[in-house]
Design a protein around this nucleic acid. Structure first.
Lengths: 210, 210, 210, 210
DNA sequence: CATGAATGAGTTTTCATTCAT
DNA sequence: GATGAATGAAAACTCATTCAT
């Protein structure tokens, strides 16, 4: 009778989890919005936690894919590759604002699922960032610096518009869903890469010989 | 029998709100942890929402105070003042990691309280940042740039360690509660100020005369 | 694909009804164990209650059959006949431990089905016992006694190993499914018949003449 | 406001668990009958299983107490003591027909609680029976016999009226709650003790000397 | 101030059953 | 015959709050 009730559930869940939080959203709310019976949620996702996990993996599976694809341009140089990564991830998040927003929020609560996500996807992501930074140091593109601290900064810039959507909209009047947001914000991230990450490269011995 | 049951409640609430989220924490959980009767919470804070609001205002009242104090050093120059602001806020957040962490998370859900906070404290904060940036442009200390976009970047750097505590600890092995974290991370923020915000200042007429 | 799904359902039902009780077993549990679709149960037995009724009648139909057959040896004397009955019923229950066990348990809850079973099979069974006891009194084989009270005692001995399986196994270490259980336990029942039912027969007038 | 809601819950639970079975009884049913809010059940007994456990221990605690007390008359001889035990337990069960009835039924389902009860109370009970039988053999009061098999028989006689209440009432027209039931049924149990357990004592050497 | 009991509304989950395929 | 999806009803349980003590 109903065609894609599973899809409808996920869509409704993302919307509600985003606006009211996972714990603040009831299974009934989701079912009502999705116009399905609330038992369908248990049927398709086992339980509420299963629905959350589905959202998580749905998000991070794509996220890591984008990362991997962008990483493949490493041969064009670390700086170019990092810019590619930043652009692609920003774009991806913008295309899934609500999902990104609520996933990042729920990743900050203590739970088994979160730990699992961290130990799979976040570690993979870290691995790629590490590779790029190491290449950048090696090829003298980036100023030497602690990799974890660089990751914090880059990730902070990439995530901010999605972890603070209300602040963005109601205080700064910046709307990440608008047409040119990615373009404009990406310029600032490039600036951080060019100015903070790449400037004042110390001249290395090897570099001179080369 | 119990001396400061109110204090104990707040302490327990911050801990639990942080690890399980506001909606995911029950009044009984808090009462148990604080070793008080759950009716006490209604007594002291009217209801659960009142306890949340108390945490919010308790946090932002101090936050804005720090901001104001640091802003008073504006006469030493915009760059120095901004560094002062960044340092003080970072320090303050580090001294209240759990509180900061959970407040920032709950600020991203839709609610009346959140809107009120945004329209009072966040606007005030924005006002100060704006003043500093305008001074920086005027005195030719900062490269001209969209103020909202600068605020995003600066705030993203300042908030990241507290919006992603699990990621920080379990993936990057950076612990914001450790001794030298503020010192080390502040250097990177200074770098952003110096390199991204201040470098390549275009020569202005007025500047030359001066 | 599946050959005798009906049989598989009954087998699974008996197992689960026995270990978890009728009300404690879900249709899905049965379907999963039987490796059939849960809709099949409705198909074959109308509904869950129908499956229960099937189990009941399946059990009692055979039970009464055994009783009837054994009763036919009444001409050999009441004592011999009673021993035959006891032996055959004990044997039958042992061959269907799980079924007997759960049927006896469910017979103690209030329900329409139970009342129907009582008013058909139990009454029939009582009729045969009555006949045997009456013959025993008449032929001076049994000490005169209240028939209902004799039925209680005999039935209690016959049912005990199946109404208290856990106790039998885990406390007394007697396993009714083991090879010589019937043989050993039957001896005790014979003893009750010989010692308690038959001993100290008072000399009746009629008996003397005979 | 409400006086003894806890007591009311237990009373209602025993009645309903007895007539509909534990799994067949809903918490709401109990709450309605007890005229309390259904949340009270969770409040007083944690959850439905906790209420069951309370009934179990409430029953067996008293049961074992009766057993212990009766066992203290062992000096009067094993036979007299056993009769005392049988009488007291029968009396106790008759005073708590519904409780005894449902407890015995639920003891036959597989669960953690049941295993715990078996391994505490049933083992204790077995211990006392064992002591009495051993004394009986030693003092030449009882015909030597396998103790577990004797326990089955005695317990079967003691439990029957409570494991098959419907059968008793609707088929045999024996009502265990009626005035003289204990008296009448106890006679039959004494008969079993005297005739089956004690008769035909083989003459032992020691006995002769004595 | 503090507490234990109680409650009504709301939560998630389970269940037996139905139905189109 | 058999199945996967779907559903309404009811289940157990949780929760914030109230109130007499």
């Amino acid at each position: 009778m109903k065609k894609n009730s599973k899809e409808a559930i996920v869509k409704a869940a993302i919307l509600l989890f985003n606006s009211k939080g996972y714990a603040g959203t009831s299974v009934r709310d989701i079912a009502n919005l999705a116009k399905v019976n609330s038992a369908s949620i248990s049927y398709h996702f086992e339980n509420k936690a299963g629905l959350l996990e589905h959202c998580f993996t749905h998000f991070f599976e794509q996220y890591i894919q984008k990362m991997e694809n962008a990483y493949n341009s490493i041969e064009k140089g670390a700086r170019a590759c990092l810019k590619q990564v930043a652009g692609d991830l920003l774009q991806f998040q913008c295309e899934n604002i609500q999902l990104a927003s609520f996933v990042y929020r729920e990743m900050s609560v203590d739970s088994q699922v979160v730990r699992e996500i961290l130990s799979t996807y976040s570690l993979k992501e870290k691995y790629y960032f590490q590779k790029i930074f190491e290449r950048g140091f090696e090829w003298n593109e980036f100023r030497p610096h602690s990799i974890p601290y660089l990751i914090i900064q880059l990730k902070s810039l990439l995530m901010m518009p999605f972890t603070n959507t209300h602040y963005m909209r109601e205080v700064l009047y910046i709307f990440p869903n608008e047409a040119f947001f990615v373009q404009k914000y990406l310029k600032d991230i490039y600036l951080w890469i060019d100015k903070t990450l790449c400037s004042d490269i110390p001249i290395r011995k090897g570099a001179l010989i080369k």
